[in-house]
Design a protein around this nucleic acid. Structure first.
Length: 641
DNA sequence: CTAGGGTTAG
């Protein structure tokens, strides 16, 4: 009688506090020694309540003789904890008990823990123990073993476990397909799928996800067309997969089709298509989606709000991002706070980002490592050196967050951007972790902005040891020489690059015209859009020369030294083409929104400023490092970038 | 009383 009462009470509690009250009632009623009721209580704390692991452990240790079920519950909870390898602990304890034995659940949970820890050694040991305990032929244990080996990167063992199964069911077949994909073995995955005797929807979805993650978008599309039935997961997988690999128009297309088919969207396809907008800078489409989100009632989903914040920020409209953030009808999570801080940061609103960080602290949401990356980024892009250092210390001392290499990178950027190159160098030397190429490259970038030859050469030497084939590093060093007018050194770098046939990473830019993304790559084969862009650009450049006295900047030409066969290479930079195309295609008064993969070059920066003045158009460029908002001949970055 | 396979934003 009491059992049902306890169970139904527990199912209504999602927080620890009322659960503790139930615990007290159980105690008063003298039911705390009942293994069934206690087991239920433990399960509830360990699985249904977040952040109650500590309490669950205490419960477990207070129970006189915990049974196998209680051990399993604890193994399960630990397998999902930040340190999943801890699940081995209660498992070993269970094995040592003379009166208790691990069952199939024990193995399934502990193997999950090992899989989540990506630690092969204990996985192999557990595998051999399944034989001793007679679970080697258990279908659930076997399936978990397949996943475990795949997570630990051992695809051969995963597929061997599968091959040795006498009667694999459809779940085991699916696990084998996913295991092969997980280890990058696309061919085996297709092979296993081809041999499957029965395929349900999940099998097809596993193929979709596998091909999509591997970047085999053509094969994914083929599966999508061939499958007899599609559900929300199938559509989400396509949208997310194409968005992830930069095929934004295709992702938009799948979303539109999904609506047309009347299937009904879910939050995953919505966040997926919003992510495509964010990456592509597709503001117009993003706005339409926002309207849809409101109409269809998805504003009550936290993740969708977060995706909207990110989309508006990355589409150059941080005011809208703020509005979404302020009006969220659901609780703001750590992702919401971090997204808005990052958004303000990339637009150069350092002070506001800091303000929001303080509000976050007051709201009781705990910042994590990623929050601090955004915050430090905000400081470095607004030249707030002292504040940045203060936050770096606060992160370590107050929040006990161990700085990652990215945090150190932010600090180097913070000092470097602010022309404190020596300080940046010392900081690298005193770092407790050894600097990677990205760290040195950050400093080299700062040297190239501020023109410090001596340090640049030293840093370049380090980079040559770590990453000798990186053409970008050569270009950065040549920029340093060019600023100082050391043309011989510039020429020598150019020679080295030609001799080693190094190619600069191609620069590309995108612009959204009428909800379609147009991409431009410098020096690519001409098509209809690029021809039109080139024509318009010629006309624009002429007007800038005549009306604003524009002359190309030599320094920027040197960015493209390896493109010597093409004369006026600067004039073909992709961001200029995208801007020209925008001026040609968009109605006047419309803001030009351009996304570029590299950092905008000095000459393009000047040209954009002039364009904004002569053509009376606002141009917002998102480059690799931040936003530039050009208006009336000025840029929001105040030439600090 | 508990498990295994497919999609999720900073």
């Amino acid at each position: 009688m009491e059992e049902g009462w306890v169970v139904s009470l527990l199912s209504k509690c999602s927080n620890l506090k009322p659960t503790k009250q139930i615990h007290a009632h159980i105690f008063k009623a003298g039911l705390h020694t009942d293994p069934f009721i206690f087991g239920k209580l433990l399960l509830h704390c360990a699985v249904s309540i977040s952040d109650a692991l500590h309490y669950s452990l205490r419960l477990f240790h207070h129970f006189p003789n915990p049974d196998t079920f209680m051990h399993n519950t604890l193994i399960r909870a630990l397998s999902l904890s930040p340190n999943p390898l801890l699940s081995l602990h209660p498992f070993i304890q269970l094995r040592r008990q003379p009166t208790l034995f691990p069952d199939s659940f024990s193995f399934a949970f502990v193997l999950k823990g090992v899989a989540n820890s990506r630690n092969l050694r204990p996985g192999i040991q557990l595998h051999s123990q399944t034989f001793h305990h007679g679970f080697d032929a258990h279908i659930f244990v076997g399936t978990t073993l397949i996943s475990m080996y795949a997570e630990c990167g051992d695809s051969r063992s995963a597929l061997r476990v599968f091959d040795e199964m006498s009667e694999p069911n459809v779940v085991a077949w699916n696990a084998a397909v996913t295991a092969a994909f997980r280890c990058g073995d696309v061919e085996s995955a297709g092979d296993v799928f081809g041999r499957m005797p029965v395929r349900n929807l999940t099998s097809w979805n596993a193929m979709l996800a596998g091909y999509a993650k591997a970047g085999e978008l053509g094969l994914a599309r083929r599966i999508f067309c061939d499958m007899p039935l599609r559900d929300g997961v199938s559509w989400s997988t396509m949208i997310v997969g194409f968005a992830h690999h930069g095929c934004f128009n295709e992702a938009f297309g799948f979303f539109r089709e999904l609506l047309r088919e009347g299937i009904g969207t879910n939050e995953v396809s919505l966040t997926g298509v919003l992510s495509a907008c964010a990456q592509a800078g597709a503001f117009e489409f993003g706005k339409i989606l926002h309207g849809f989100v409101e109409k269809a009632g998805f504003l009550y989903v936290g993740s969708v709000n977060n995706a909207l914040i990110d989309t508006y920020s990355k589409c150059g409209n941080v005011a809208m991002a703020r509005l979404v953030f302020q009006n969220m009808p659901v609780a703001r999570s750590i992702v919401s706070w971090t997204s808005i801080i990052a958004g303000l940061a990339m637009h150069g609103y350092g002070e506001e980002a800091i303000q929001l960080f303080h509000e976050m602290e007051e709201s009781g949401v705990m910042p994590d490592g990623i929050t601090f990356i955004s915050l430090l980024y905000a400081c470095s892009h607004s030249g707030l050196v002292e504040q940045g250092y203060g936050f770096f210390c606060k992160m370590k001392n107050l929040y006990s967050i161990e700085p990652s290499i990215e945090h150190y990178g932010c600090m180097v950027d913070l000092y470097g951007r602010a022309a404190r190159l020596q300080k940046a160098y010392e900081f690298i030397c005193e770092m407790p972790v050894s600097p990677n190429a990205i760290i040195w490259r950050t400093l080299l970038g700062a040297c190239s902005i501020h023109g410090n030859i001596e340090l640049a050469e030293l840093v370049k030497a380090r980079l040559a040891e770590m990453d000798p084939d990186n053409s970008g590093d050569h270009v950065l060093l040549s920029n340093v020489y060019a600023i100082a007018g050391k043309w011989k050194d510039v020429a020598s770098i150019r020679r080295t690059m030609t001799e080693n046939s190094m190619k600069k990473a191609p620069g590309w830019s995108m612009i959204e015209i009428d909800k379609v993304i147009y991409g431009f790559v410098a020096g690519e084969k001409p098509n209809k859009a690029t021809q039109e862009a080139h024509e318009k650009l010629r006309e624009i450049m002429l007007r800038l020369r005549v009306e604003a006295g524009y002359a190309p900047q030599l320094r920027s030409v040197l960015h493209d030294i390896e493109e010597e066969e093409k004369e006026d290479s600067v004039s073909k930079h992709s961001e200029k083409l995208a801007a020209a195309f925008g001026i040609a295609k968009l109605p006047s008064g419309r803001i030009l929104r351009i996304v570029k993969n590299l950092r905008v070059c000095g000459d393009c920066h000047t040209v954009m400023k002039l364009m904004s003045k002569i053509y009376q158009v606002e141009i917002i460029v998102r480059d690799r490092s931040r936003f530039h908002s050009f208006k009336d001949g000025f840029c929001s970055c105040r030439d600090y970038w």
